[in-house]
C-alpha cells in the first residue's frame, strides 16, 4: 500500500441501478490496494448485499434516498461504513441459512443477504444516531 490508510467516501441514491456502481468501484479499489481477486469479489458481494438490504428494508424500495459509504484501507484490514436514513432494523443477530438441499420446496429464494454479509466480514456492528443508521464492517487481510 503506497498511501497511508487511504479513505474514500461514496454516495449513491437508493436505486438498484446504482448498487452496481458501488460494487464495481469497490471491487476495483480492493484489487488495486490488495491485489487479490478473490478478496475483491468477496467484498463486492458483501457490499452489494448490504446496499440491497438498505434499499429493501431501510428505505422500503423508495427511490432517491441517500446511501453513504466510506472505505478505509489498512495494510491488515479493510473498514467499511454504510449509512442510511431509513428504518432502523437491528442486524446484530447472526442469521442462519439451514436448509436441506434435497428438499426443493423449502429452498431459500431470499433472505440470504445478511447471512452472506456475516459470513464474509470478520467484524460487524450496527448503530443508529440522529436518524442515521450505520453498518460498520471489517474484513481482515489474512496474508498481508
Amino acid at each position: 500500500m503506497n498511501v497511508n490508510n487511504p479513505e474514500i467516501k461514496l454516495i449513491i441514491t437508493s436505486n438498484f441501478d446504482n448498487v452496481s456502481l458501488i460494487g464495481v468501484t469497490v471491487h476495483q479499489l480492493c484489487k488495486y490496494f490488495y491485489d487479490d481477486e478473490a478478496f475483491a469479489s468477496e467484498i463486492e458481494i458483501g457490499i452489494v448485499e448490504a446496499c440491497n438490504n438498505v434499499i429493501e428494508h431501510s428505505y422500503l424500495a423508495k427511490d432517491n434516498q441517500d446511501i453513504e459509504m466510506s472505505l478505509k484501507f489498512f495494510k491488515d484490514k479493510l473498514n467499511i461504513r454504510l449509512s442510511d436514513y431509513g428504518i432502523f432494523k437491528d442486524k446484530r443477530k447472526k442469521p442462519k441459512l439451514d436448509y436441506d438441499p434435497d428438499d426443493i420446496d423449502n429452498l431459500p429464494e431470499g433472505g440470504m443477504g445478511l447471512f452472506l454479509i456475516y459470513n464474509i466480514m470478520d467484524e460487524l456492528s450496527y448503530s443508529r444516531s440522529g436518524g442515521k443508521n450505520t453498518l460498520s464492517m471489517t474484513k481482515n487481510i489474512s496474508d498481508k
Binding site: G23, S41, E49, N52, P108, E109, G110, M112
Partner: peptide, 9 residues
C-alpha cells in the same frame, strides 16, 4: 457478478 437476488431467482 451475481448477487443473492439473482441466485434466488
Amino acid at each position: 457478478f451475481i448477487d443473492s437476488s439473482g441466485l434466488g431467482s
